[in-house]
């Protein structure tokens, strides 16, 4: 069965799963002066895509492939050194769970929701949602990888009043790399959970920790 239309629903930036309130570390990078325009946005997104994006895509693909979601949730914890980002991932996972159970209800989602009432890691829930929607592991990896860069791009339009055409052009230029990352992640999902991608970006982790303590900020992360 072709699930392309369901993938569009899942990957739509307006899918009501809480992402709009998060910048994927872009707010911290803007404040630190490292992200000042469309050129920087491309570097930022490329870095995210090949690190946090690849890791998230691997977890999502593995969940869609039918790996045990609780084992994947632990694997996600192990791949997320920043406590602030673990909290964020679980909060967004809970929000994704609510949206997924409303859109593609399934016993597997119900079970994970019961086992992790305060939220499992978002990529795991995303992958399970994809599975419930009849999508493939590769589809889930696409959704996770794309969301990893589309979230910051949207946030930077708000943070810097960046030209929205420039921001969207960045996403388009990164499309071939997004495809590669999704394919790598989907291939890894054929193997054991331990061997899933574990790339991380130390600066994103550090900035997330300090961002979480700011009294005044536009985005939750």
């Amino acid at each position: 069965m072709s699930g392309s239309a369901a993938l569009l629903v899942l990957a739509d930036g307006r899918f009501p799963a809480g992402g709009h309130a998060h910048s994927g570390g872009a707010e911290g990078a803007v404040k630190a002066g490292r992200l000042r325009g469309a050129g920087d946005l491309e570097h930022f997104c490329r870095g995210r895509l090949h690190t946090a994006g690849l890791t998230a895509a691997g977890l999502a693909a593995a969940a869609a492939a039918g790996h045990d979601p609780l084992a994947l949730d632990e694997a996600a914890d192990a791949r997320t050194p920043s406590p602030a980002l673990r909290r964020t991932a679980r909060r967004l996972g809970r929000q994704m769970m609510r949206a997924a159970r409303a859109t593609w209800p399934s016993p597997a989602l119900d079970e994970l929701a019961a086992a992790r009432p305060k939220g499992a890691h978002q990529p795991v829930v995303l992958g399970l949602a994809a599975r419930s929607a009849g999508l493939t592991p590769l589809d889930a990896a696409y959704a996770a990888a794309y969301e990893n860069i589309s979230g910051p791009a949207t946030a930077v339009v708000r943070l810097l009043s960046l030209d929205p055409f420039d921001a969207t052009a960045v996403l388009a230029r990164l499309a071939p790399e997004t495809e590669q990352v999704a394919q790598t992640a989907a291939r890894a999902a054929d193997g054991p959970v331990e061997a899933l991608p574990a790339a991380s970006a130390p600066l994103l982790d550090l900035v997330a920790e300090s961002h979480a303590t700011w009294p005044v900020r536009l985005f939750a992360s």
């Binding site: 307006r14 009501p16 809970r94 929000q95 708000r158 939750a220």
Partner: peptide, 20 residues
């Protein structure tokens, strides 16, 4: 609840954080 610069989104288009 934090709203990511879009208060109307959090109460209308994507209410998940508020519901939680």
């Amino acid at each position: 609840v934090e709203t990511g610069a879009c208060p109307h989104t959090a109460i209308r288009d994507d209410i998940s954080a508020n519901l939680e």
